[in-house]
Write a protein that binds this DNA or RNA. Structure first.
Lengths: 223, 223
DNA sequence: ACAATTAAGATAGTATTACTATTATTTTAA
DNA sequence: TTAAAATAATAGTAATACTATCTTAATTGT
């Protein structure tokens, strides 16, 4: 079986669909690689254009600016995560097991689908951890939100919230808990790596720490 | 009684102590105002210099770049919060009440101390919500961390973690819970304002929503 | 009171960023 | 095979993020 997984992203995010051409795909692929390695602040379209040997103007024909490219990448990530959530969920027995599958997904690493992914899963996950909040912590968030730019994120949280509601229909904060789980998975992973005093991590325990914290949290919130 | 509250901030953050001169204080005061109104990305030292009618070079004599100024402002906020935590805590009876006081502090608005604050408390709180993660979600976080630039944040989380440990000495993740409470208070407040589908908020319920969510969370985690 | 620091102003300049515009050439699709 | 679309090549602009230098004004130590 040979297939390529791809997701629709709101067409307000790009000027020209990067999935529609080789150069477009290279922009996203190398964009992921360079945002990962340089960090979003130091990443520029000029550097990207040099790397993939096209002109800067060509890159600008696909994305208005680097923030839109980041948004595109994160939408891809969120859509992929939601796909994996759905995939794991229908294979699991009860709601509690499903929620645990989700915690495993959120605390990474991202599973790779056989059949060949377009993008580097590890880079994508690291970008989600370090850069994802920068997609919405901006002055014009409301304007961008109008164009459905955060729909995949909202859909992901909604899917998780539905499973939370399956576990405990009386819990009042399913959506807030869902977004908190996603954000906390990223934040605690980042803290464990860079600011460990903000966690309770011990030497040699990094592996699985965030998952253990979130499992404990969920088991107590949804008893 | 006439007093001025002030906090020491790691002297690696600034080039010249802004608390040591009138211009320095104006840089921070108007920096807060302008980061609040323009957002961090659109805020520049040139605009700040024009606003307070000094030359751009003068601003650069106090802070290397705008990120350092943001760090300074957030350190001030974190120190202030920790001061308020300590203040509230010693006035409260049992550990559980103390933790509830903390949740009230985290979900704002920031209380103003009589005697005159240097800075606008509301702007400071809004900056904490929208911009605080940008202080550490950067490529050179480890380098900056070496200079104690995040000490006030760590101290705040540590103080909260101690109170969590008072409530339940057997809870294994006091520090992670502390940082999660701080980050979640900000994130959920932001979502309620801009991306409400990531919360369970209803019309006319915004007031106190985040506090209710966190109270429920804490009461179940530390029974 | 005077010299010595130090701070700030005034001015200039550089490299990089974040774009936009134009025209020529190549690729692709009908 | 021709028209349309995409890209290259090139140029240019305004803003950003600084750095440098020189002069003047204010402060401080003795």
């Amino acid at each position: 079986m040979d297939f390529q997984l791809s997701f629709k992203v709101s067409d307000k995010i790009y000027l020209k669909d990067p999935a529609s051409s080789t150069i477009g795909k290279k922009i996203v692929e190398h964009g992921i690689k360079m945002i990962y390695s340089l960090g979003f602040e130091s990443f520029t379209f000029k550097k990207l254009a040099q790397e993939i040997e096209v002109t800067e103007a060509t890159v600008y024909r696909y994305f208005e600016n680097k923030h839109r490219l980041l948004l595109y990448i994160l939408n891809w990530y969120w859509s992929y995560l939601e796909f994996m959530v759905m995939f794991k969920v229908q294979a699991s027995g009860n709601a509690r097991e499903r929620l645990d599958q989700i915690l495993q997904l959120l605390t990474g690493p991202l599973p790779t689908l056989s059949g060949g992914m377009e993008f580097n899963q590890n880079f994508l996950y690291e970008i989600a951890i370090s850069e994802s909040t920068k997609t919405f912590l901006i002055k014009d968030v409301n304007e961008i939100n109008k164009h459905n730019a955060f729909k995949p994120y909202k859909d992901l949280c909604n899917s998780i919230a539905n499973i939370i509601a399956d576990v405990d229909p009386h819990y009042l904060y399913a959506h807030s808990l869902a977004s908190t789980l996603v954000e906390t998975a990223h934040a605690q992973h980042y803290f464990a790596d860079h600011l460990p005093r903000l966690t309770d991590i011990q030497k040699n325990q990094k592996q699985g720490y965030t998952l253990a914290f979130l499992r404990d949290l969920v088991s107590k919130l949804l008893p």
